[in-house]
């Protein structure tokens, strides 16, 4: 069947959404910079930033989904996530990127680059994990 039930993506990716950084500063989602994530994580007692490199991008279970395989952190742990093609990730030094930037822009009015194998995304882990 060609029908697909659209899964609602989180509202905070919509252009204009107000994001609070760890120091209390408010920014619009489209104005976030790599430093904002790094500095917020530095303040956080629980979370730390990890670099997650895109290793593979495969088709997901539904036509609108992709399975992205990341290599996470210094240990290069392999982690797979299945997301909708329009789901944006924040790439270090580049900003918001998704597998289908046109769709992300259409749905969220959020300017996006194309997420590619080799891109290094901002991700989080818990501090204290060894």
């Amino acid at each position: 069947s060609a029908s697909s039930s659209p899964v609602a993506l989180p509202p905070f990716f919509m252009r204009g959404s107000i994001i609070q950084l760890a120091d209390g500063e408010l920014k619009r989602v489209e104005d976030l910079k790599t430093e904002d994530f790094i500095q917020s994580a530095e303040i956080s007692s629980e979370l730390k930033i990890d670099s997650s490199t895109v290793e593979r991008i495969d088709n997901g279970q539904s036509p609108n989904a992709v399975v992205i395989q990341f290599s996470v952190g210094e240990l290069k742990a392999q982690v797979c996530v299945e997301v909708l093609v329009e789901y944006p990730f924040f790439v270090f030094g580049q900003g918001w990127s998704s597998c289908c930037p046109d769709r992300t822009t259409q749905l969220f009015e959020l300017s996006c680059a194309k997420l590619c194998v080799g891109d290094v995304c901002v991700s989080l882990t818990l501090r204290g994990m060894r």
Partner: peptide, 25 residues
């Protein structure tokens, strides 16, 4: 009286995927 609409504020970490490496103890 018209109450002002409150604008939702989202925490920064909600935008970042939580990718926990598999642990081996």
């Amino acid at each position: 009286n018209v109450e002002p609409r409150s604008v939702p504020v989202f925490p920064w970490h909600s935008l970042v995927p939580f990718l926990a490496p598999t642990q081996s103890d």
